[in-house]
């Protein structure tokens, strides 16, 4: 006996196996990201007054990434439609676009991570704080591009402050009480930011690998079994759209609020 309904839909459910599988998987993904979003809401609601950051992330880059993903969702759909109407060349074109868009997304994400990595908050012995991007550091001093503040709270709400000065500041190591970069350990917001976007980026990476496989070596199936191949494109597309869907919520909760 062969496994039935791998390609044709089962009459009473109207769906083929892999589509049931991917939707079940997506349901569990909803709960996975649901757990993380719950953590986000809970930790944000429980945060101390005035210590939830606003405007820490670059809205321009976030918007760029959102548009990139939205566009890739469109090309994914068109790639599937191209398969359905039997236009293999179009499929190749649209999924090539998807892959390029996805890799660009990851590139932008890497840049953003790097930007946080070299961003330091330095506690000085005179009670002030210096905050900015590291330019140079040696045994005796640290040079950052940023500003001084007297109240740590001023580092949190950047939206209400107008343009942030970016002066070159050289600080002697002997004046420094402690310094810490904007990694996930810095505060709860960044912990959430890195965890949520990191997990999302892993999904993007996984999706890109799958789509890349189906675009490259996997597309040989088109000749043998075009219907099954079209189904594969649909199923991988559903996953890709879900990843886009997650970003649609990640973007506002991390970048805009």
């Amino acid at each position: 006996m062969e496994i039935p309904y791998t390609v044709k839909p089962r009459p009473d459910t109207g769906i083929y196996n892999a589509k049931v599988g991917i939707w079940l998987f997506l349901a569990s993904e909803v709960m996975l990201f649901g757990g993380l979003f719950s953590a986000y809401v809970l930790l944000r609601v429980g945060a101390d007054e005035g210590y939830w950051p606003h405007g820490w992330l670059d809205v321009r880059l976030g918007t760029l990434n959102t548009v990139l993903l939205a566009l890739s969702a469109i090309t994914t759909l068109l790639a599937w439609v191209a398969c359905k109407v039997g236009q293999f060349g179009r499929f190749k074109f649209f999924h090539a676009c998807t892959i390029v868009l996805a890799l660009t997304f990851l590139g932008v994400k890497m840049y953003e991570y790097h930007d946080k990595w070299i961003h330091y908050e330095i506690k000085l012995k005179d009670g002030r704080f210096a905050d900015g991007h590291m330019i140079a550091s040696d045994d005796t001093s640290v040079t950052i591009e940023g500003r001084y503040v007297t109240d740590e709270k001023a580092l949190y709400d950047l939206r209400s402050q107008g343009p942030i000065p970016r002066d070159e500041i050289k600080i002697s190591r002997s004046d420094i009480l402690s310094m810490e970069n904007y990694g996930p350990w810095h505060n709860t917001f960044l912990a959430l930011y890195f965890t949520l976007t990191g997990l999302h980026a892993l999904h993007i990476l996984g999706g890109t690998l799958v789509i890349g496989y189906l675009w490259g070596p996997g597309s040989r199936m088109w000749k043998k079994d075009p219907e099954r191949f079209t189904n594969r494109i649909e199923v991988s597309g559903l996953f890709w759209h879900f990843v886009d869907l997650v970003w649609i919520f990640l973007f506002p909760v991390l970048y805009l609020t």
Binding site: S28, M31, F33, G34, G35, T195, L199
Partner: peptide, 16 residues
């Protein structure tokens, strides 16, 4: 399917 993923999320956070 639906109850395990929140623990996976929690495990990831504890891992962090």
């Amino acid at each position: 399917l639906l109850a395990f993923p929140p623990l996976e999320a929690a495990s990831l956070m504890q891992l962090m």
